[in-house]
């Protein structure tokens, strides 16, 4: 099941950042918040079939985060998305030689704030965390990398 797979991936990512000693209930609440935000978008994506995704969408953001690895990065970024009512559609996160890299595809169609406001919050949070957070509409990537 794709949903279980997604829940598992979010949980793994959150534990990965907060460490194994993180409060179980906080993690569970955070994962469920993120998951609930994601779920409607997943249903929408299934209805639209593969074409919707393949064309790149104006209502999706690609959030990319780069910097030195430390606990709390995934949690902080997903917290901002959750608060703005943006669903996470996909997450990919790696750490290579202490360098943290994460890409989140987020659905902003139900977002309670503008992209500019969201980016401001990412900038502030990025400064606090010591990482660079970029947010760009998905259709830019589609235009540049897909024919």
């Amino acid at each position: 099941m794709a949903n279980e797979e997604l829940i598992y991936r979010i949980t793994r990512a959150v534990y990965g950042r907060l460490g194994a000693g993180a409060d179980e209930r906080t993690v569970e609440a955070l994962v469920m918040d993120v998951y609930r935000a994601v779920e409607p978008a997943l249903a929408g994506a299934a209805e639209e079939g593969p074409k919707g995704g393949a064309e790149g969408r104006a209502d999706r953001l690609i959030v990319s985060v780069f910097g030195t690895d430390h606990p709390g990065i995934v949690a902080a970024v997903s917290q901002i998305l959750a608060e703005a009512r943006c669903s996470i559609i996909d997450i990919n996160q790696t750490v290579v030689q202490g360098k943290f890299a994460m890409v989140i595809v987020a659905d902003i169609s139900r977002a309670g704030e503008s992209v500019a406001a969201l980016k401001d919050r990412f900038r502030g949070e990025g400064d606090r965390l010591g990482v660079r957070i970029y947010a760009q509409r998905e259709d830019l990537f589609n235009a540049m990398h897909r024919i």
């Binding site: 995704g53 393949a54 690609i62 990319s64 780069f66 996909d90 990919n92 790696t94 890299a101 890409v103 595809v105 660079r132 970029y134 760009q136 830019l140 990537f141 540049m144 990398h145």
Partner: peptide, 16 residues
């Protein structure tokens, strides 16, 4: 993920 990390990195590097 619909785009590879290399593709995303390339775009971010170009714009930033």
């Amino acid at each position: 993920m619909e785009y590879t990390q290399a593709e995303i990195l390339q775009t971010v590097r170009m714009t930033e």
